[in-house]
Design a protein around this nucleic acid. Structure first.
Length: 325
DNA sequence: AATGGGTCCAACCGCGATCTG
DNA sequence: CCAGATCGCGGTTGGACCCAT
């Protein structure tokens, strides 16, 4: 029944690969291809598991791989695609010739996440931290709001402290914007001071309402899985997407700031026009529990989440090297 | 020079999907 | 059809390297 094991676990070497091992594997694959990873280590004279050989080849030895630094354009692509697909590294890497999913993942975790955080943008949702705080304040029931806001304050301490104390944005922004080659982010951070002040007020007001006036929360709450967003409640957070976990809107944000594709890539969190109004079921990738909604499931099943009149699809489809469908 | 902390990335781990005997 | 191997993926870790003290 079944196949024979891929390797004898107790007789395989692990850890760093030596140049000799690399040479053996490369020359064997050059001659015989990568048909059967189970046989490759044995035939190539390597005391390695087939899985280890596959990883070494796909992540490091493949001749078409790039090994240098990520360019600005590559970083932009990663951020843009991550705002849509999340941690689907293989999908993202497919749009970056010569880069592996491991490369992209490592670069994201070590560099890009920090860059975004330094700009006051949550790398998970691609929204400004201030918007996330405001969402917490305006969309959760009182006990949840209080606890989550407290937790968020811990997570986003620097950004929130800046907002609440109105200290000027400092080194991080300037450093980041310089490193990323233009002033889009600085433009965003520094733009519309009245909106940021408004955001601070929303945070304060929302927390105050949530913790003191439970009767103000409408009956069909967004956190209620059976509920439908009421117009009155939606109006209380008109600036923000009305569903926790909702992702998007590059287009509106870019237009607000300077209309460049780079600012569209960086942050997808501002006013959410297009998708939430047109088709919420396609816009939502996850609900507040992290469960996938229709859109994400369609990606996983290999079909597009985007229809022909979707702004996001228009944005991305022009840039994609490998179709997602 | 020693050392402690931070960063980076190659490699490993575990899981679900797919394939194969 | 089924059991189990293989593949592909995303998350995590180990250790090399760098830098400040």
């Amino acid at each position: 029944m079944g196949r024979i094991p891929c390797c004898e676990k107790d007789n395989v070497k692990r850890g760093q690969w030596t140049p000799e091992e690399d040479n053996k594997l490369s020359s064997y694959i050059a001659q015989h291809g990568t048909r059967n990873w189970r046989l490759i280590p044995k035939n190539a004279g390597l005391q390695r598991c087939g899985k280890s050989c596959r990883l070494r080849w796909t992540n490091y030895l493949r001749p078409d791989l790039k090994h240098g630094q990520f360019s600005d354009a590559e970083e932009q692509t990663i951020v843009k695609l991550h705002s849509v697909f999340g941690n689907r590294w293989s999908l993202i890497a497919a749009q970056l010739p010569g880069r592996t999913d491991n490369d992209v993942k490592n670069h994201w975790n070590t560099k890009l996440k920090k860059k975004l955080s330094g700009m006051g943008i949550d790398p998970v949702t691609h929204k400004p931290f201030s918007h996330l705080m405001a969402e917490i304040a305006t969309t959760l029931a009182p006990p949840q709001a209080a606890h989550l806001a407290e937790a968020a304050l811990g997570c986003f301490k620097d950004e929130v402290l800046h907002l609440l104390t109105k200290k000027p944005m400092n080194h991080q922004v300037q450093h980041s914007s310089a490193a990323w080659g233009n002033n889009n982010i600085t433009a965003y951070i520094n733009c519309k001071p009245e909106e940021k002040d408004d955001t601070v007020e929303k945070i304060k007001l929302g927390l105050s309402k949530a913790t003191q006036e439970p009767e103000m929360i409408p009956s069909n709450k967004p956190w209620d899985p059976n509920g439908i967003m009421s117009p009155s409640f939606a109006g209380t957070c008109s600036v923000f997407p009305t569903t926790p976990g909702f992702q998007f809107s590059p287009t509106s944000f870019g237009n607000e700031v300077d209309g460049s594709s780079w600012s569209q890539s960086i942050c997808t969190g501002s006013t959410c026009t297009g998708m939430d109004q047109q088709d919420q079921s396609h816009g939502k990738l996850e609900d507040e529990n992290g469960d996938e909604y229709q859109g994400a499931k369609e990606i996983r099943n290999g079909t597009s989440i985007f229809n022909s009149d979707c702004v996001l699809w228009d944005l991305l489809s022009h840039d994609l090297i490998n179709p997602m469908v």
